[in-house]
Design a protein around this nucleic acid. Sequence first.
DNA 1: CCGGATCCCAACCGATACTG
DNA 2: CAGTATCGGTTGGGATCCGG
Lengths: 115, 115
Amino acid sequence: MPEDCKVETALEILVGKWKPIILYQLFSQGTMRFSELQKALPDITKKMLTSQLRELEYHDIVHREIYLQIPPKVEYSITEYGMRMAPLLQAMNEWGMSHIEHLNELYGAEMQAKR
Amino acid sequence: MPEDCKVETALEILVGKWKPIILYQLFSQGTMRFSELQKALPDITKKMLTSQLRELEYHDIVHREIYLQIPPKVEYSITEYGMRMAPLLQAMNEWGMSHIEHLNELYGAEMQAKR
DNA sequence: CCGGATCCCAACCGATACTG
DNA sequence: CAGTATCGGTTGGGATCCGG
């Protein structure tokens, strides 16, 4: 039965213009401050960075640590549970890379995996 | 470097309100006619079914076989290349199922993995 | 420094009607 | 049967400004 397909559940968590790249940063850099994420992702607005992080936090993928001080300091990191996503992200990344090659073979290399 | 993250490439192909369930149908049923897909997905409109299938076809995941006859007959199936997505979809499905359980533990079972 | 609130636009999606 | 055309609603995301 179609209801048994939970691919969409996995997608929910990853879908969002900035989520994959945010996760990539946190996975590779470890703990990062809000401003460090901003620096790493120059084109994202504060609003988007906040909302994307909040959704990841809701799903227990990202942990938000608030330091009560002036000026404020907030650090983000991958949760222990979030670490369990690593193999999946790795698999998606590898599949994505090979798919880009495949598209180049199909349609030629003059395009860069645009759809 | 962030540009090496191709998770988004994999997402591009799966994102779309009906793509996962369409793939689920084709993977489990094999070849299906347009009308059979419509029957299996009662809430999808022809327009959406067509457009989602076209995008999957562009990415060489789905094959479209047209029979020139009256009335028309068109069959859709997973391409040989598309078959290589099976392990990834399987992994995403399993991760999704376990994540639903995890959310239930976190927030209680009164909600069904809604965000 | 780390956001929230508001407004706005573009892309996505649905309903309906029409066609080879 | 298997689509296309058109229109209109909804939602995700960006720009800007305000606040603790």
